[in-house]
């Protein structure tokens, strides 16, 4: 009994973590930028999703459409990636420290923008997850909304795999990630690819934030809380690897659930202990590539 409940909690946490870190990995994989704004985009998605759904409800929209409305609002909020990428473009090719500082500047600016637009108080969406009810199977009770979020993460993982591995666009993206100059010499519009990838990565973060809002509250603490776990996922899975994000998110989700059950005081330590072990034993992560 306990194992199933714990596994369910771990996988729900992993699903949300995967969505955000997949975006982070995608951007690093192609643009070699550690995008600290991933946490801010996640928070933006949550706030924006809450507002869009409140507006939708005020127009008489059905609560049953919660999930599609939130996904759409997340996709919409992710368009802010266009603006961020336009600014980041000025530091492509410069020292990594410049890029890191610029994304950090965005984190701080986002914090003020979120406070200015939505105020300082955490925002909750009432009891909306219950519109989908619960699923009782063999003595277990699962909130259906949480199952749908997990399913959404699986669909996104599948779509990302298909896009990158099976489409011609994916081939160009991978070529750009491998060697941007060579790809450009062969006719690829790398500038457009960079924009596309950054916006896609941003949308993954904002959709993650929008999907999680019915089970949590949008708050100004969200970016930091998320980034602490997201970086653990990235290090464990390997920087730049989508498969790594998938497995890393599951590892972090399970570790968190287990430590909360058996050693609640050691929740963060248990995760970062594994991070340190990975850094020492396999510095490029489970699916990352060692530097040549």
């Amino acid at each position: 009994m306990a194992t199933v409940d714990l596994l369910f909690a771990a996988l729900f946490n992993a699903a949300v973590l995967f969505l955000v870190t997949a975006g982070l990995q995608l951007i690093f994989g192609v643009q070699r930028i550690v995008n600290l704004t991933a946490g801010s985009l996640y928070a933006l998605g949550a706030y924006f999703g809450a507002s869009v759904f409140e507006w939708f409800s005020a127009q008489g929209g059905s609560p049953a459409l919660l999930l599609p409305v939130l996904i759409l609002s997340g996709l919409l909020a992710g368009q802010v990636g266009f603006v961020i990428e336009r600014v980041l473009r000025t530091v492509y090719g410069r020292d990594e420290a410049f890029q890191l500082l610029m994304t950090f500047a965005f984190v701080l600016m986002f914090q003020d923008v979120l406070r200015y637009v939505w105020g300082a108080q955490p925002r909750l969406l009432g009891d909306l997850p219950s519109v989908y009810g619960t699923l009782a199977v063999g003595g277990f009770t699962f909130p259906v909304y949480n199952l749908l979020v997990m399913l959404s993460a699986l669909v996104v993982a599948g779509l990302l795999y298909w896009l990158i591995e099976r489409t011609s666009l994916g081939h160009v993206v991978r070529a750009t990630a491998e060697n941007g100059r060579m790809a450009e010499a062969l006719g690829a519009n790398t500038r457009r690819i960079n924009t596309l990838v950054f916006v896609l990565g941003s949308m993954l973060g904002t959709v993650g934030g929008a999907l999680v809002i019915p089970t949590t509250a949008a708050s100004l603490e969200m970016p930091i809380a998320l980034i602490v776990e997201a970086f653990a996922v990235v290090v464990i899975g390997g920087l730049g690897s989508i498969r790594g994000a998938f497995l890393g998110a599951i590892i972090v989700g399970v570790l968190r659930a287990l430590s909360l059950t058996y050693f609640p005081e050691l929740e963060v330590m248990s995760i970062y202990l594994v991070v340190i072990v990975v850094l020492v034993v396999r510095p490029y992560g489970l699916f990352g590539k060692a530097e040549a």
Partner: peptide, 16 residues
């Protein structure tokens, strides 16, 4: 932790 916003794992631990 302070400002913790996801309690699914805590709830699972309590249920257990």
């Amino acid at each position: 932790s302070f400002s913790q916003l996801d309690f699914t794992a805590n709830v699972a631990a309590l249920k257990a």
